[in-house]
């Protein structure tokens, strides 16, 4: 069966739409992004503050 035989309603869903349709992947991204960029980066900065002279 060639791709032309696929009826339009079964059209391939684009990657971005599939991503946006998956709440659990979005949940992962929405927790991972600030966890890395804000929390983990912040913790690393605070623990690396040197002792006073």
């Amino acid at each position: 069966m060639s791709p032309h035989d696929v009826p339009p309603e079964n059209e391939e869903i684009p990657f971005m739409q599939r991503l946006l349709d998956n709440p659990f992947i979005l949940l992962f991204l929405g927790v991972a992004s600030p966890a890395v960029l804000y929390l983990i980066w912040g913790i690393m900065e605070i623990v690396s503050i040197p002792l006073g002279k």
Binding site: L29, G30, S33, P34, L37, Y38, G42, E45, I46
Partner: peptide, 27 residues
């Protein structure tokens, strides 16, 4: 929003000691 909105938590830490300008500016 999902990816970046929460970074704004740093708005409260912009005049805090110990956090670098890079961290502050990015977030």
């Amino acid at each position: 929003y999902i990816l970046f909105l929460q970074l704004a938590s740093v708005h409260h830490l912009l005049v805090d000691p110990g956090l670098s300008s890079n961290y502050k500016m990015f977030n």
